[in-house]
Design a protein around this nucleic acid. Structure first.
Length: 404
RNA sequence: GUGGGUGUAGCUCAGUCGGUUAGAGCGCCAGAUUGUGGCUCUGGAGGUCGCCGGUUCGAUUCCGGUCAUCCACCCCA
C-alpha cells in the first residue's frame, strides 16, 4: 500500500472543516484590515531562502526540500511564506511604486524535520505582510488583528513580545553579548558554544537548563536599544496597555528567521504540547532591500493552521439539509428537478436508486439530513412528495413545488 | 540528526508466563412480517497479531533488524 510521505497528512472531515473555518475567518478579518489576497509559487529558487531566512538558520541549513530541477535550477519547496511574497513585491516593482501594500496568503509550507506533535513536514500557514508603513502603529495593528482572529476562533493564547533593535543598535548589542558569552562559554551547551560564532542572538533562546542559568546575567537587547527603537517599543507596549491586551515581555524571544528587526512577537498556547507557538511575526525593515528592492519597511506574521486546528471548537451544526429518494423509478426525474432547485439554497442529498422507505430514512439519518423526502407509489399518483422532519418526526405530503 | 514509547478487526484497546478455533466495546451488514430512521433485542461479516530474519517441534508472544507512528530534544508556525 502506498502511504503519504512521512510528516505529510491528508486532512479529511471533520478536520477539514476546522481547516476551512480557520482560513475563512482569518481571511475575512485580514480583508477588513485592508489586506489583499496574494498567491505565490510553492517552488522558488533556493537562493531566495538562503538570503532571506538566513544561511545560519536550521531551516535553510538542514530542513529544506531542495533539489535540482530538469532545467538545472537549484530550487526548493518554500519553508515559509514571507520570502516569496517579498520576492513578488520586488519583482512586480511595487517597491518603486511606493505607497502601502498589504497582502494575506495561506498555503502549504515544507520543512524536512522529524515530525512530532504540532510539527509536520508539510504544514499550512496563514499570514499577512504589510509593506511601506514604518510606523509602529502598524506593528500594533497587526498584533490587534491576530488577536481578533484568535478571538473570533474562540481560542486562548498569550503574547510574548520583544524588540530586536535595528542596524543602529543591534550590532553594538551583539558585540557586547558575544563578549559576555565568551566569558561564560564553559557553562553553555555544545550547540550554544557553536552559536556564539554563527548566531549569538539565538543563544538567548536556548531551552537548555544550564544555558538558561548561565545566561541569567547576560545583557538584554531591550536595555540596549537606540533612541528610535526604544521609543517605538515603548509606544507599542503603551498601545497594548491602553487596549487592555495582555502581553509578556520576553527579552529572550528571538525569531528564528534572520530578517527580523525591532518588533518581534509570538502567540503561544499551553494546550498543544512542546510546539506551542501558534503565530509569530514582527518587523523586517531590511529584507526588501536585502533581496534587491528599494529599502521598504515591512511587518508581518504567520500562523500555523494545524496547530490552531487542535484548539478550535466548532459549533455543533446539527441536522441540516434535505435527502431525496424514490420508491418508484419513474419519480427519479421529478426528484432530480426538485434537487436542483433546492440546491440553490441548501444542502441536498439524492439517492438515485429505488429503495424501501425504511432504507431511505436510514440513509437520510446517516447523512445527517434534517428532512427526508420520498416519492413512492401513492405520491406518484397524486403528484405529491412525502416528507418527514427527522428531528420533530412530523410528516406530511406536499406538492412538488411546495417543498420548503 | 538524537533519545524514549507504540504497532493485534474500520476505530479504541485487551490478551497469549511460546501451543491447536486471537477477544471486547464501538462501528458495519442482516433480521425483529406488508411504506417509517435514531433506541432496544437477535444474528452475521471482518484480523497473513506492521514487515523481514533468527531461536524453537511450534512464534502474534522471545531475540535481532527494518519500516511506520507518537512524544520529547533540536528547530519553529
Amino acid at each position: 500500500m502506498i502511504q503519504a510521505l512521512r510528516g505529510m497528512k491528508d486532512i479529511l472531515q471533520p478536520q477539514s472543516e476546522r481547516f476551512v473555518h480557520i482560513v475563512e475567518t482569518a481571511s475575512e478579518i485580514a480583508a477588513r484590515y485592508g489586506y489583499d489576497y496574494i498567491e505565490t509559487p510553492l517552488l522558488e529558487e533556493t537562493a531566495l531562502f538562503k538570503r532571506s531566512v538566513g544561511e545560519s538558520s536550521d531551516i535553510v541549513g538542514k530542513e529544506m526540500y531542495q533539489f535540482i530541477d530538469k532545467g538545472g535550477n537549484d530550487v526548493c519547496l518554500r519553508p515559509e511564506g514571507t520570502a516569496g511574497i517579498v520576492r513578488a513585491f520586488i519583482q512586480n516593482k511595487l517597491d518603486k511604486r511606493g505607497g502601502i501594500h498589504r497582502f494575506y496568503y495561506h498555503g502549504p509550507m515544507f520543512r524536512y524535520e522529524r515530525p512530532q506533535k504540532g510539527r509536520l513536514r508539510e504544514f499550512h500557514q496563514f499570514g499577512c505582510e504589510s509593506f511601506g508603513e514604518s510606523s509602529v502603529y502598524e506593528d500594533f495593528t497587526i498584533i490587534l488583528m491576530i488577536k481578533d482572529i484568535f478571538d473570533a476562533l474562540g481560542i486562548g493564547y498569550s503574547i510574548k513580545l520583544n524588540s530586536l533593535g535595528c542596524p543602529e543598535c543591534m550590532p553594538g548589542y551583539r558585540e557586547s553579548l558575544v563578549r559576555h558569552l565568551v566569558d561564560i562559554r564553559d557553562g553553555l551547551c555544545e550547540d550554544c558554544q557553536r552559536r556564539v560564532e554563527t548566531n549569538p542572538i539565538r543563544v538567548l533562546d536556548c531551552k537548555n537548563g544550564s544555558c538558561k542559568e548561565a545566561l541569567a546575567s547576560s545583557p538584554l537587547i531591550v536595555e540596549n536599544l537606540c533612541e528610535t527603537c526604544d521609543a517605538d517599543f515603548r509606544r507599542l507596549t503603551k498601545m497594548l496597555d491602553s487596549h487592555s491586551i495582555p502581553y509578556e515581555l520576553d527579552p529572550k524571544l528571538v525569531r528564528g528567521l534572520d530578517y527580523y528587526t525591532r518588533t518581534a512577537f509570538e502567540f503561544v498556547s499551553d494546550e498543544i504540547g512542546a510546539q506551542s507557538a501558534i503565530a509569530g511575526g514582527g518587523r523586517y525593515n531590511r529584507l526588501v532591500e536585502f533581496l534587491g528592492g528599494k529599502p521598504t519597511p515591512a511587518v508581518g506574521f504567520a500562523l500555523g493552521i494545524e496547530r490552531i486546528m487542535e484548539l478550535v471548537k466548532l459549533p455543533e451544526k446539527g441536522r441540516h439539509g434535505i435527502y431525496l429518494g424514490v420508491m418508484e423509478e419513474e419519480a427519479l426525474d421529478t426528484i432530480l428537478k426538485i434537487a436542483h432547485n433546492k440546491r440553490k439554497s441548501e444542502r441536498v442529498f439524492v439517492e438515485y436508486s429505488k429503495r424501501s422507505l425504511k432504507a431511505h430514512l436510514k440513509a437520510a439519518d446517516r447523512l445527517g439530513a434534517r428532512v427526508c423526502a420520498v416519492i413512492g407509489e401513492e405520491e406518484l399518483k397524486d403528484s405529491l412528495v412525502w416528507i418527514k422532519d427527522l428531528e420533530t418526526k412530523e410528516e406530511r405530503r406536499v406538492g412538488f413545488d411546495q417543498l420548503d
